[in-house]
Computed example of a mutant assay.
Amino acid sequence: MKKLIYLSIVLFAGLAACKKEAEITKMTTVSFVSEPTVSKNAVTLSKSNDTSSVVTFAWPAVKYPVKASVTYTLQIDVPADTVGNNAWANAKTVVVGKDVLSKSYLGKDLNTMALNLGLTPGAQGALVVRIQSYQDQYAYTKALTLKVTPYQPVAVYPLLYIPGNYQGWNPGEAPTAAALKPKIYEAYIYMPATENYYYKFTTAQDWNHINYGDGGNGAVTGDGLAGGLVAPGPGYMQLSINLNTNTWSAVKTTWSILGDASPGGWDTDTQLAYDPAKKVWSVTCDMKRAGSFKFRANNEWKIDFGIDADGKLTYADSPVYGNVSGINNITVPSDGNYTLTLDLHDPSNYNYTIKKN
């Protein structure tokens, strides 16, 4: 009898223990206690803020029943992809880390994200962002909206080199040509008076790699035995080569400014002078704050520069790269006498300066 009572007690205790254990492991639904925040609602991106923090997302911690690390992830998408049966299926996911409660973006990283999600460069678009937490189950915040205006970054392509008779046919010391578009190269080269103005484009600073010469009928060829291309020297040459079409061009240029900020208004060009030692064009003249101007070649609107939204010197018209709409004219900050310079010697960094005297 005592044995039977003892077994009953043991069995009852075992059942009670099982019941208690089930209560401990019962899953509790978790959630964010408040919504995420963003440091600003709209961001305009440009080269100037590529390496700066442009926006920061923050969120509260989620408390799970078990005291262990919680992994947080950002999900970023366009609004159209966050509704319907496949909502958020195409979202970009960014794992922030364990127990991390904020995420900042550099301009270049947010720009890449926006372009990858299909936003149009130069136009404001919307991104939606939510935060996901995970330990033994997922929890999500409501989505917040960030307005983003991305920009199209300029791709960097390998340089070409331009040896020629004007510099002793030495590719090791030859000036370079750069590409603003795939396989379309350009450079501005000063060629002093010499017996001829032949030159070539080379892919390296030697003659052991591809070099492009005259293929006849306005074409170029990679046949190393081909003759040189010829520029209309002496003078300041715009040299180009298009390896998509295997064509080339060489145009002799002089430079001026034209506009109602300049002495000649919109009717008469004010000429710049070239300094071979400094490799720049310049002019000193009286300028007006109320007007504007552009730099242009050969007193015509075939090759001319304005500035983009970031103030960088940019082609408005170019037979090599085509015409660009929306390029602004250049202004001076106040009436007065200025020295203006145009520097085209580095094909990767065309620039200008305005200095009040």
Rank of each mutant, 00 (worst) to 15 (best):
I5V: 12
S8A: 15
A17T: 15
K20I: 13
A22Q: 11
T25K: 13
M27H: 13
F32D: 09
E35K: 13
K40S: 13
K40E: 11
V55C: 05
W59Q: 11
P60T: 08
P65D: 08
V70I: 11
D77T: 10
V95K: 09
S104N: 06
D109R: 01
T120P: 00
G122Y: 11
Q124I: 03
Q124C: 00
G125C: 08
V129N: 09
I131G: 02
Q137R: 14
Y140F: 15
L144M: 14
K147S: 14
Y151K: 06
V156M: 07
L180K: 06
I184T: 08
A187M: 03
M191T: 07
P192S: 12
A193C: 00
D214W: 06
G222F: 04
G222K: 10
Y236E: 01
A250L: 04
L258K: 14
L258D: 00
D267N: 15
T270F: 10
A273I: 12
D275F: 11
K288A: 13
A297D: 01
N299M: 10
E300R: 14
E300P: 00
G311I: 10
L313P: 02
G326A: 08
T331N: 07
P333Q: 01
L340M: 12
T341Q: 09
D343T: 04
L344P: 04
L344D: 01
H345P: 00
P347A: 06
Y352K: 04
